[in-house]
Each structure stands twice: as structure tokens, then as C-alpha cells.
Simulated scan of single mutants.
Amino acid sequence: MDVLSDTITAIRTGAPTCGVFIRHAPWGRDYPVVPGTGFHVVLAGSCWLVPPSGAPIALGAGDVILMPRGSGHVLVDSLDSAVTEQAHLGEPRELSGPGVRSELMCGAYALGRQRSHRLLDELPDFVHIPVRPGADPGLRGLVDVLAMELARPRAGTDAAVPALLETLLLFALRAWFEKQAPARTGWAGAFADPGVLAALRAIHDAPERAWTVPELSAVAGVSRATLTRRFAATVGEPPLSYLTRWRMLTAARLLRDTDTPLAGVARKVGYQSEFAFAKAFKREYGLAPGQYRRGDDGESVVAV
């Protein structure tokens, strides 16, 4: 897989959850913190997202907004409206009222509590992707298909919606990183730098390989000094430090999502010795691989 898809697959756990609500102005809803990446998609109408601090964010039909760290917030149809609801499971899908109708899809992507990655860590608390006609045809089309499936469920909808939600996360992040790319900083800069991206792909494709900086610089087509400087400036750490981090993240996913024996997991991430692997894993996660596999870290799937 490409680096973005591979990274999201490594840190995700479980299936995304979502619900649709319809309200007529005036309305206001409080959203608590969730242990994952929350999201809203405005299917019809408009509203405002009011963060705990900072300026309110205007959301229009088709807009997508992500909360990478599940930050709490408020949604209101107007900045003058009172907050009268607490978002929760089992609430009425639609409440009638005298004002303008708004329809939103809200939910969350579950993340492994210890499977952190700088790609998400460096994002702002609220990632707003306006989906205007012509701005991002792929994302706009995806939102339209999601709205259609939710409005008129048919055979296959139960399978289609989770798959569409998985794609929504990737499309939204891609749109954000492409928008930020001109600054050439952080992971947006990494995706925009052909040399850094080539080195990242090599690491992701073969984490078991004993990569050296000269080998990665040859893949990247730049000098060792140039790769090291650009890699650290965008990814946030030197190439070999990232290699170790990616190995541990890959190992965590294999431990949780597969039945591969510990020795097999060790080999898949570049360790011939199970002891050496266990030592490196515990240094990263604070747990032995067997404890992590049993779920002693309390990692769970978020429900929204």
C-alpha cells in the first residue's frame, strides 16, 4: 500500500461507527471527547462547530470535518442558538421544528490507544475540508454516494457504508495534506518531497530489511546528508529512528490482528532474535509482546 493508506491501516482498529441526525432550527448539540478520530459530514443544510477555544467554524453542505484526537465541541445551527442536547447513542434520528432543516452524519474511527503516529499527531484538533463544487471532485462524489446510501438503504448498504467511511478518512486526509503541501513542512512536506516519500515507501514495503542511510538515500536519489535533513524536517525524526518506530507499529498491529507467533512477528519486523524484539517492543509500548496481544493495555474499540 502507499504510505498514507499503510499508516492509517496500522493505527486503526475495529470498524468506524456513525449515525445520522436531522434537526430543524433552532438546535444545539454538545459532543463529548471520544477515544478516537471523530468526524462530521454535513449532508444537508449548514451549521457551526464551536471548539472549546478559538473561532467557530462555519460548515456547509458537503463539508467534512475531522477531530483527530476526538476533541469535544458543540454544533449549533446558529451562533445565537442554545445548546439543548447531548449527543448519545439511541437518540431520536429526527426532531421536528419550525426552522431550516439540517442533516449530518457523525461518528468516529477507532484508534489503538498506543498506536500513535506523527501523521495524525501533528494535525490540528479540527481539520476542516470544505467540499465545494469543483474543489475536490473525488471527495465531493464520495460524500454524495454516502448521502444516497444513508437516505435510501438498499441491498448491500450495510456493507457499503463502512467501506465508504474508510475511504472518506483517506480522502479527507489526502485533501488536507495536499492543501498544506506548499508549506513543505511536517507530513504534508513528506508527501510532497519525492526523495523522502521514496524512502518512506521503502521502509513501509520492507520493514524487515536492515536498511542503512546510504541504501535509503540511493532509493531516494539524493545524498545521505540531504535525505537525513529533509527526512528529519518533514517526518520529525531521522530515517533509522522512523524505521524502528514503524517496525514497532507494524508489530503491534500484527500482534492484535493476526495469530502470527511471536517469533514470526519478530522476523516480519527485522528481528532474528525473539528476545531482542521483545526488548525493543517493551521499550516502545511499556508491555511485553505477549501482554500487548492479550490486551493488557486496555485498548478498545470506540463506540459513538
Results as ranks from 00 to 15, higher is better:
Asp2Gln: 08
Asp2Ile: 00
Val3Thr: 09
Leu4Met: 15
Ser5Ala: 13
Ala10Met: 09
Ala10His: 08
Arg12Val: 02
Gly14Ser: 09
Val20Met: 10
Phe21Asn: 04
Phe21Gly: 05
Asp30Met: 10
Pro35Ser: 11
Gly38Met: 01
Gly38Glu: 04
Phe39Ser: 03
Val41Glu: 11
Leu43Tyr: 04
Gly45His: 10
Ser46Ala: 15
Gly60His: 10
Gly62Ser: 08
Asp63Val: 09
Leu66His: 04
Pro68Ile: 00
Gly70His: 02
Gly72His: 14
Val74Cys: 10
Val76Gln: 08
Ala87Met: 13
Gly90Asn: 08
Gly90Arg: 09
Arg93Ser: 12
Leu95Phe: 02
Pro98Asn: 11
Val100Cys: 06
Tyr109Ser: 06
Tyr109Arg: 03
Arg113Lys: 12
Gln114Gly: 06
Arg118Val: 05
Leu120Asp: 02
Asp121Asn: 06
Glu122Gln: 14
Pro124Gln: 08
Pro130Asn: 06
Gly134Tyr: 02
Leu142Glu: 00
Asp144Tyr: 05
Asp144Val: 12
Leu146Trp: 03
Met148Pro: 00
Glu149Trp: 05
Ala151Cys: 06
Arg154Ala: 15
Asp158Asn: 12
Asp158Ser: 13
Ala159Arg: 15
Val161Gly: 10
Pro162Val: 11
Pro162Met: 08
Leu173Trp: 03
Arg174Thr: 14
Ala175Gln: 12
Phe191Lys: 01
Asp193Thr: 10
Pro194Met: 12
Gly195Thr: 03
Ala198Val: 12
Ala202Glu: 10
Ala202His: 08
Ile203Glu: 00
Leu216Cys: 05
Val219Gln: 10
Ala220Gln: 08
Ser223Tyr: 03
Arg224Gln: 15
Arg224Leu: 04
Leu227Gln: 07
Arg230Tyr: 09
Ala232Lys: 13
Gly236Glu: 09
Leu243Ser: 01
Thr244Trp: 00
Thr244Ala: 11
Trp246Asn: 08
Trp246Glu: 02
Ala252Gly: 12
Leu262Glu: 12
Ala263Ser: 15
Ala263Glu: 14
Lys268Phe: 01
Glu274Ser: 13
Lys279Phe: 05
Phe281Asn: 01
Glu284Cys: 03
Gly286Gln: 08
Pro289Asp: 11
Tyr292His: 14
Arg293Ile: 00
Gly295Arg: 07
Asp296Ile: 06
Asp297Ile: 01
